[in-house]
Design a protein around this nucleic acid. Structure first.
Lengths: 203, 203
DNA sequence: GTCTATATCCCGATAGAC
DNA sequence: GTCTATCGGGATATAGAC
């Protein structure tokens, strides 16, 4: 185990990984907006300049965190979807996974959706997002006739999931595991309702 | 008209109002997170200490902006709703107003939903929000049987509206007035679909 | 790869003069 | 109510030694 703790230094050669881990820790405690390279350095007991040997900027570090976020969400949503067969159930499962991801990996969710990171500047981010978009598109297309109505449904479901996720993080469902499950059920219910009423979406 | 411009000072005695206006300007340009008292002072040509004669802290100033936000949204949503009679249409109108508010008063929307302001600490904020909550609750209750199902529908509609608003501000519908109207129609359609499928919400 | 040290900039907030 | 001046803190990022 690498040394940690007050006064210790961090000389084991995996500062890069440690920085990503510590960033997630700090974001969990204070939010992305307050995250700083300097504080990460202090927590790890290294000089404020040390991180710059591994990441050219704060945004570069956040991008690395974001990639991990996409990977985690993809894995978890795939697992959740595997248990459902009908397209509407798979879509509801993905919604549920979205909420659970937001609730259980709040710092990752924040980096993905509230960090102000310019995702266009980081090709690895777009690459990490792609398989998720594909899986989502598959679900939606199985439920709609035309491409236009697929887009409508996709956006409606995304918006509902995202809205519920934000409300969850804002404390509107309370705190803890119960809040997460409540939000997940509400969002899944919203998805089912949208699928049910999807012919009203366009007009 | 008060003097403005490079090198001018701001000695006309309505610095308080000017600060609120300038805050909105700056938030429009850089986002709430980047807003600072210091920059507002610079823009107005006053000393960095001058604002503190009117607002005890940055948060106090943001709270004043937030109150204006609630007032504007309430006025606009009432106007939008006045043109509809059927409850479902009134609810869709409110959703549309929400999106248009986000799109046309982005800085106010940001202060309300992305400033990190602790609304509990400012009673005037809760007071300004109340009439909006009431109007919304009226719409929803006209569409549901039980109190429980009213809550479900209310949260689903709120989440959808909020999600679409954030996507709009994130550029997912493009830029400009067309993007706003597209998002508003999508959100209104989502609301109608949710009303239509509302019996699927609970289970 | 990590260090020390530093340059440069930002911020919120306060004290005391006018 | 506004000023000047300042305290005390924060940040990103770089230079050069080890």
């Amino acid at each position: 185990m690498p040394k940690r703790g007050k006064g210790d230094r961090y000389h084991h050669g995996d500062l890069r990984t440690a920085l990503v881990d510590t960033a997630i820790e700090l974001i969990d405690e204070r939010g992305v907006r307050q995250f700083s390279m300097a504080e990460a350095s202090r927590r790890l007991g290294v000089a404020v300049s040390a991180p710059y040997a591994h990441f050219a900027s704060r945004d570069d570090l956040l991008a690395a965190v974001a990639v991990r976020g996409y990977e985690v969400f993809h894995a978890e949503s795939q697992a959740e979807m595997a248990r459902a067969k009908a397209p509407v159930d798979r879509l509801a499962a993905m919604t549920r996974a979205y909420i659970r991801f937001a609730g259980t990996h709040r710092p990752l969710f924040e980096v993905l959706f509230d960090s102000g990171l310019d995702k266009q500047r980081y090709p690895e981010l777009k690459a990490a997002e792609q398989p998720i978009s594909d899986a989502f598109a598959d679900c939606v297309e199985a439920l709609t006739d035309s491409e236009a109505s697929a887009d409508d449904l996709a956006e409606a479901v995304e918006a509902t999931a995202h809205g519920h996720a934000l409300f969850l993080l804002d404390g509107k469902y309370g705190q803890g595991a119960d809040a997460i499950e409540l939000a997940a059920e509400r969002a899944a219910g919203g998805t089912r309702a949208l699928v049910d009423g999807r012919h009203r979406l366009g007009g």
